[in-house]
Amino acid sequence: MKVAEADILIVPGYGDSGDGHWQTRWEQRLSTARRVEQADWNNPVLDHWTARIVREVSVATRPVVFIAHSLGVPSVLHALPRLGPNIAGAFFVAPPDLSDASRMPEGLTAFGPYPTERLPFPAITIASRNDPYCAFETAERLTESWGSLLIDAGESGHLNTESGHGPWPEGTMVFAEFLSRLQAPLLH
C-alpha cells in the first residue's frame, strides 16, 4: 500500500504530540495523514477519545492505517468494535501499562484494561526497554495477545520528544516498510 492509498490517522496520547514530536512531523509529511483531534488532551475521557476515532474512521474514503502513540494505543483498541472492516493496519508506539497506577498519571488507568483479542488486521508495536510508562515484558505480553509484531527499540525511553525522538528516522523506515506490505481490507 502507498500513502496515497490510505487514510492515515495519527492518534496522539495524553497531552497531544507537540511541534517537535515525530507524530506531528509525520502528519506534515504524509499527504493523506490527519490527526484525530481530541477536545481535551490533558483530561482524557475514554468514551470521548474513542468517539473521535470512530468519527474519523467513518469519514475515511480509503482504507485506514493508524499511527498511535502512548494513550492513543488503548484508545484505538477500545474503539475497534465500532470501526467496521475498513482498517488496513495499525502502527502502535510505546503503549502504556494501564494496569500499573504507579507508572501512569492520575486518572489514565481508566483507559484500561486493554482489550486482548487478536487484531483483525496487521499491526506493529514498537516498545522500549526503559519506557517509564510500561515495562517491556508488559508490552511483550500485550503484543502477543494482539498478534502484533513487536519491535524492540532498546533503551529509548517513551519514544517521544523528551527521549530524543523528534525526527525519529528509524521509526520512519519501519513505518514505510510496514505500509508497503499492507493490503486494502476486503469489504463485504
Rank of each mutant, 00 (worst) to 15 (best):
S102Y: 01
V174F: 10
H78R: 04
V36H: 06
D40L: 09
W146S: 01
M104Q: 08
L108N: 06
P12Q: 12
S163E: 11
P169R: 06
V36E: 08
L98P: 00
S145Q: 09
D131I: 00
R34W: 03
I67L: 13
M104W: 03
R103L: 15
W168L: 02
F92Y: 12
R82G: 08
H48C: 05
T32C: 06
V59M: 14
E27Y: 06
L30I: 14
W168Y: 15
H158A: 12
A123Y: 07
L119I: 09
A176N: 14
I151D: 00
I126M: 11
A110F: 04
L71V: 07
G15F: 04
E106S: 13
R181G: 05
T50M: 03
C134M: 03
P85R: 11
L30C: 03
L108Q: 08
T161N: 13
N86H: 12
N43S: 13
L46V: 13
H21K: 00
P132G: 10
G171T: 09
L187H: 04
T172Q: 13
G154K: 04
D7M: 03
S75D: 01
R55N: 15
P115F: 05
L83G: 12
L98I: 07
I126G: 00
D40W: 09
P132M: 11
S17G: 01
